[in-house]
């Protein structure tokens, strides 16, 4: 279940970037196209629908055989269980809070570090620029499982195991290269003449960047930050290897931890997954305009 939530979340914003489906024979879609799209939609959306359904079913209906599609009793108990446990906050709600802190701080850090770097790579003649940029990108090629062991050992030395700071640092490290690459494209689009003009008008180079280029980059920064945020929010491998205690864990390993006992409270798992997926969907939807604007920043053309 947890995995399908991740999928649902990460395909949301990405979809904005896929080119519109190719049209066969001019206007409208062909029968074949519609059929294929329908199959795809059912396959993709069924787990999501099932998750939402399960999260509002009474336990009796959750375990009913044959499965009840429509005639189940609706309840919000599972959602209550996500947030409150007997005698105060639930462990899950703490993990959600941890996720907010870790994803938020690492995104801010990656943006603060990555945007100026992207600007520098775009504007200045840097020695072996292409090699550097390739090296930066190549750090993203590595699957997290490959690096997680050495990082685990290093973190143990530095006492960063099972700390939020540890997660924040590793997520920042993963998001900075992405931010640099994506932002460099946006900076390239903003003509350097704005900064030239500002420098002739009496500003220093940094002031010129801060006062003229940065405002024009905001849509791009928003788009980039959303992607970084979603990466950190969804990240599972580092989180499960590097953290263990309830007050440090982020939501993905916490939700996964619900599965695996002798009995699994599927209603709770589904409700937690919905809560986990919702912010990202909402956030991506809110900045959708910026995501599109980010892609077509070309509005300021030479």
């Amino acid at each position: 279940m947890g995995v399908s939530v991740d999928e649902a979340v990460s395909t949301g914003p990405v979809r904005d970037h896929t080119p519109p489906a190719r049209r066969f024979g001019g206007r409208g879609r062909s029968v074949l196209e519609i059929a294929l799209l329908t199959v795809l939609a059912v396959v993709m959306l069924f787990p999501v629908l099932w998750m939402i359904e399960t999260s509002i079913k009474e336990n009796r209906d959750v375990y009913a055989i044959p499965a009840k599609f429509f005639d189940f009793t609706v309840t919000l108990d599972h959602f209550k269980d996500v947030f409150v446990a007997s005698g105060g906050r639930s462990a899950l709600s703490v993990s959600f809070l941890n996720s907010v802190v870790v994803a938020g701080v690492s995104t801010v850090l990656a943006t603060v570090l990555g945007v100026p770097a992207a600007w520098a790579y775009s504007r200045f003649a840097v020695k072996a620029k292409k090699d550097q940029l390739f090296f930066i990108l190549s750090t993203r090629f590595m699957p997290p499982v490959v690096v997680v062991i050495p990082i685990f050992l290093m973190y143990r030395q530095f006492g960063l195991i099972d700390t939020k700071l540890g997660l924040i640092l590793i997520y920042t490290a993963f998001n900075v290269p992405f931010t640099i690459w994506m932002m460099k494209g946006f900076v390239d689009e903003v003509p350097a003449e704005y900064e030239d003009a500002a420098m002739l008008d009496g500003y220093t180079r940094l002031q010129a960047f801060w006062r003229f280029t940065l405002p024009l980059l905001l849509p791009g920064i928003a788009a980039t930050a959303v992607f970084a945020l979603i990466f950190s929010w969804n990240e599972f491998v580092f989180a499960i290897f590097l953290t263990s205690s309830d007050d440090v864990r982020t939501a993905p390993p916490a939700i996964a931890g619900l599965i695996g006992g002798t009995t699994v409270d599927w209603g709770l798992v589904a409700a937690a997954s919905v809560v986990f997926a919702l912010p990202v969907l909402v956030f991506a939807y809110l900045v959708r305009k910026h995501l599109v604007a980010g892609v077509t920043l070309g509005a300021v053309r030479r």
Binding site: E193, Y194, D196, A197, M199, L200, T204, L216
Partner: peptide, 20 residues
């Protein structure tokens, strides 16, 4: 001298008016 201290003005082929 940095551009700011040369006391000259430049007009670019692309006008570079601040769009905002």
């Amino acid at each position: 001298l940095p551009p700011a201290e040369r006391d000259i003005a430049m007009v670019f082929q692309f006008y570079a008016l601040y769009p905002h």
